[in-house]
Amino acid sequence: MIERLLGWLGETPWSVALLESLYAWPLVESTHVLALGLFVGTTAMMDLRLVGIAFRGVPVQAFTGRLLPWTHIGFAIIAATGVLLFYSQPLRYYHNVFFRVKVLVLIAAGINAFVFHRRAHRNAAKWGADAVPPRAVRAAGAVSLAAWTVVVVTGRLIAYNWFDCDLQPQPDWVNWAAGCAVGSE
């Protein structure tokens, strides 16, 4: 079902044009990578503050109030270009182990950020100026740092076809993780 949908998506004229373009694809990909500096960069600076090892003299509210809008701009760029990249080769990415791990950890990072803003950050007035914030806040920062590290590393590794379905034989766990249909031929 989803395979047929993605297969169809990958055969749409715009998808083919993007994948085969001389400059469009590299430009989209480069924008995706450079936006890392803005998105993950500002996220990491805020996380390091939450963990209590950077910018100890700057209140956390300054980060969430003044720097976060820039993080959001970075996210918009990186999400838009990411969707375009996926659109250029939907089926290949869908079956790419690194892409799958990346998406899962991406969701985890999103939940972590959501929970932080819904809970610990609510009473930031109490601890925002502390050089070392409370345990729950430090945990949220550490989880975020770890999650985005995994997202960046797996994101970079999507470029490699080591575990692709059309490169058989693969260990069973790889075919399971990549969702490859094997053994039916």
Partner: peptide, 29 residues
């Protein structure tokens, strides 16, 4: 991949100060 992680840290550290110099970002500091 590690090169990219370095880019993230470098980018963040640069932007915090450069945005501030431009009158944006952490303006209260």
């Amino acid at each position: 991949a590690l090169h990219l992680l370095g880019l993230c840290v470098l980018g963040g550290a640069l932007l915090v100060v450069d945005l501030r110099l431009l009158g944006a970002g952490l303006t209260g500091q």
